[in-house]
């Protein structure tokens, strides 16, 4: 197991992105995606409280894990299977802010499912974002199967599959990783480990410290990474993708992070998490941390930061407006696409 803990000084931070092959433009784009994901997420909750969005599942707190990993992908080439908290993954791969809101509001022009699925079940074939269900861990063997097909066809695509810590208790986690290990498939298993499966803490989910330890049983590397450090996440994901692409087989990434808000709009996390614990983690807000690092490194200025925040807020507002103006599906469409229609 490899451990990547990012606590670097400003000067090192500056050198760090260069070593990772990232430009200043890349850093600012990553920062932008994190801000945009947060801005959209905040508006989803407002819409929910206004009775305009029936259900919200939040990714606040996970932005570094999601953007850092997705930014390392070859977009449109690599297959992506998200889980239901991955707004920032979808945005980074190329889903637009408007599309996020169309999914949130289940509108007819929602490209993921035309309003059939719960929000945040992103799907878009042109970007190789694969449709997922709400069942936990079922997408993991799919990732192995997609990677198997890539290997048989000799294509360069790597598949990345996201899931939470709770998913690692399921049989499909084991069956998917085991198959990928046996066949040394080009796939990256990315666990957004936020320490809780709804209310059940990690200590009741597994008798080991790190999800990454489980990789040993499948014969490939398991990596622990600080999931709130966007560049550390980028680094380990890039390494895993490169290894997979060059025939080195799968990697399991255990990105430690924290969900700031309840599991969904139907949940009350005060029943199972102390406010002190939540506040403690909010001090480690991945966006604030990246902002501080970028400011210290002289890559971001307060003026640039304000501009980025204004821009992403406006984009989120536009998406909300666009989403609300968009039509609901035709009722009769509920009967379509049970089977192939040609």
């Amino acid at each position: 197991m490899i451990s990547k803990q990012g606590t670097l000084t400003a000067k090192q931070e500056e050198g760090r992105h260069v070593a990772l092959g990232l430009s200043v433009k890349d850093l600012l784009e990553m920062y932008d995606k994190m801000l945009l994901a947060r801005a959209l997420d905040e508006r989803m909750w407002l819409l929910n409280r206004q009775g305009k969005a029936n259900f919200v599942v939040s990714g606040q707190g996970h932005e570094a894990a999601q953007v850092g990993s997705a930014y390392a992908l070859k977009r449109g080439v690599d297959f992506v299977l998200t889980y239901y908290r991955d707004h920032a993954v979808a945005l980074t791969v190329g889903i637009s802010a408007r599309d996020v809101m169309l999914s949130t509001l289940a509108k007819a022009n929602d490209p993921s499912s035309a309003g059939r699925q719960f929000p945040a079940h992103y799907s878009f074939p042109p970007l190789r974002i694969v449709s997922v269900s709400s069942a936990v861990a079922t997408q993991i063997p799919h990732a192995s199967g997609i990677a198997l097909a890539s290997k048989l066809k000799g294509e360069e695509a790597v598949t990345i599959v996201y899931f939470g810590d709770g998913a690692t208790s399921k049989g499909d986690f084991h069956e998917g990783l085991n198959f990928a290990g046996v066949h040394k498939l080009p796939v990256v298993f990315f666990c957004e480990n936020n320490l809780y499966a709804i209310s059940v803490p990690l200590s009741k989910q597994m008798a080991i410290q790190d999800v990454a330890e489980r990789a040993k049983a499948y014969g490939f590397p398991g990596v622990v990474v600080d999931g709130n450090d966007v560049l550390a996440v980028y680094e380990v994901t890039k390494e895993a993708l490169d290894r997979a692409r060059s025939g080195g087989g799968p990697t399991l990434i255990d990105a430690k992070t924290y969900r700031f808000l309840p599991h969904t709009s139907e949940d009350d996390d005060r029943r199972y998490r102390s406010r002190e614990e939540v506040e403690e983690w909010k001090k480690r807000d991945p966006i604030e941390r990246f902002r501080r690092d970028l400011l210290q490194a002289g890559i971001l200025t307060e003026a640039l930061d304000q501009e980025a925040r204004k821009r992403t807020a406006a984009e989120a507002e536009d998406a909300v407006e666009f989403g609300q103006k968009s039509p609901d599906p035709d009722p009769k469409d509920a009967l379509r696409y049970v089977y192939f229609e040609g």
């Binding site: 297959f79 694969v130 079922t138 993991i140 063997p141 799919h142 990732a143 192995s144 199967g145 997609i146 990677a147 198997l148 097909a149 890539s150 048989l152 066809k153 598949t159 049989g171 499909d172 084991h174 069956e175 998917g176 085991n178 198959f179 046996v182």
Partner: peptide, 28 residues
């Protein structure tokens, strides 16, 4: 062996992997 694949003894995995292969253009 690449087209006639002996799998681990795991039915959910067999079907799940086959679904993935179908998603990526095979006819499993």
């Amino acid at each position: 062996e690449h087209r006639v694949i002996d799998t681990p003894l795991a039915e959910s995995g067999i079907v799940g992997v086959a679904i993935g292969a179908a998603i990526n253009g095979l006819r499993p």
